[in-house]
Write a protein that binds this DNA or RNA. Structure first.
Lengths: 231, 231
DNA sequence: TTAATAAGTGTAAAAATTACGCTTATTTTT
DNA sequence: AAAAATAAGCGTAATTTTTACACTTATTAA
């Protein structure tokens, strides 16, 4: 396996990926966690994870975790950071590379909930998690909170068609502060990355709110100009 | 070693850390790279790296790389990201967690240059590097460029005492664009994180420029107020 | 003594952000 | 059928931040 002498006898570790799977429902940020089936800590709440195989890249391993546990494909997924303390897992030396994913809950068939003993929790009502998973969640949320301000990733948490008030509610949930309705609209529309549809969503008001769609093409054009999304 | 059945028979990988070591000299961003001694790619330019041992944390491994190669301690060091493609290293399956370090070149005794065949290169005159190290450097620079705008990490590249024009030159080198002398000064001073000394540095002008020192204490007070460094 | 020059200070114009009031479309209630 | 209620949508004035740019100062070399 090692083709050169230099690598002979070097230490190897178990390398895992753990995924912080974010969702958004109505007005709350949610997290998908599951009940661990194996020891140590069998029965306790944990992030979804697995070991990295020898024939798969790290990002692929994470992708598979998300796909297998949600049944969804083409999910927004990004590396968070490495958790590499020696004793983080009492079972063995395991280094874990945490990733976070953003899911459209409504699209999600419930593969995960049934097959994996998984459950969506409100972000601020999470049960305590095993090992350093609590810290991963805190760090993941901090990253999301930061990144959402300079990259248009919030859309990944909404259905394909969404209203501006809905988008505002999402941002309020992530940033944990109220935003001005009128200024928010002005700002987001001024970027010209939303495509207005003729349909309205009437579920939250009598008047109804127009539906919009994120315009990836316009966004990329914007990036090329050097101008970029900033909320 | 594995205390639980679940871990038995799971795949293990060689886990490495590679360090992008940034420096700053006069008006240029520099990178410390070295000539690899072992196969594959012996003789070619490479980032400093090593394998993570079973009894050290990942961040510790990176710290040791930097300490051993520069002879310096208490260096600013941060994880960049994981490089985990299956074939990134032709010698074996090696997953590498890249880190970047910011060092004050002037303090550096030349341990590295002598003991490690290391050499400082201007950032834009780097030789080509082995494996995916080129990409690590690009990503590291992108991260530095972004982070330097919202965290006061630039100071790590300057001597303890520095002038405002010096600081401006550093920012210009990192951000790769000219900054207005007067506005830069105004902005940085308004944050109240620099301590003015009575000494002047006369090396670059007849008049001389006052020396300043970064005030960690004031910075932390600022963070607590929720206000934060933004350039 | 004077010329030269980087360092340092101030101020006006432009742009972005914030605060907030009024109108509109629609449904439910009277 | 009219009126009340309400989220959605639109505009504008006040404030703050950013940008652009001119002048003065301290010092050394000529």
């Amino acid at each position: 396996m090692d083709n050169f002498d230099f690598y002979k006898g070097k230490n190897r570790v178990l390398l895992a990926v753990d995924c912080i799977i974010f969702g958004f429902d109505k007005s709350k940020i949610k997290l998908l966690v599951f009940q661990r089936k194996v020891d140590p800590e069998a029965g306790n709440w944990s992030l979804l994870g697995r070991f990295v195989e020898s024939d798969e890249s790290v990002i692929n391993a994470a992708t598979r975790v998300v796909e297998e546990s949600t049944g969804l494909q083409d999910i927004y997924l990004e590396e968070l950071r490495t958790y590499g303390a020696v004793d983080r897992d009492p079972g063995a030396r395991v280094v874990s590379i945490a990733h976070y994913a953003l899911i459209r809950i409504d699209e999600s068939n419930l593969t995960s909930v049934e097959a994996f003993n998984a459950k969506w929790f409100d972000f601020d009502e999470l049960p305590s998690l095993i090992f350093d998973h609590q810290q991963m969640v805190i760090d993941g949320m901090a990253k999301l909170r930061r990144k959402v301000r300079y990259r248009p990733i919030g859309f990944e948490l909404l259905p394909e068609k969404f209203t501006i008030p809905q988008l505002k509610t999402l941002y309020e949930a992530i940033l944990q502060k109220p935003l001005d309705r009128r200024n928010f609209r002005k700002k987001i529309l001024s970027m010209d990355i939303l495509e207005k549809l003729s349909e309205k969503d009437k579920s939250t008001s009598r008047k109804g709110a127009y539906l919009y769609r994120f315009n990836q093409h316009n966004y990329e054009a914007l990036l090329k100009e050097g101008i970029h999304f900033e909320l």
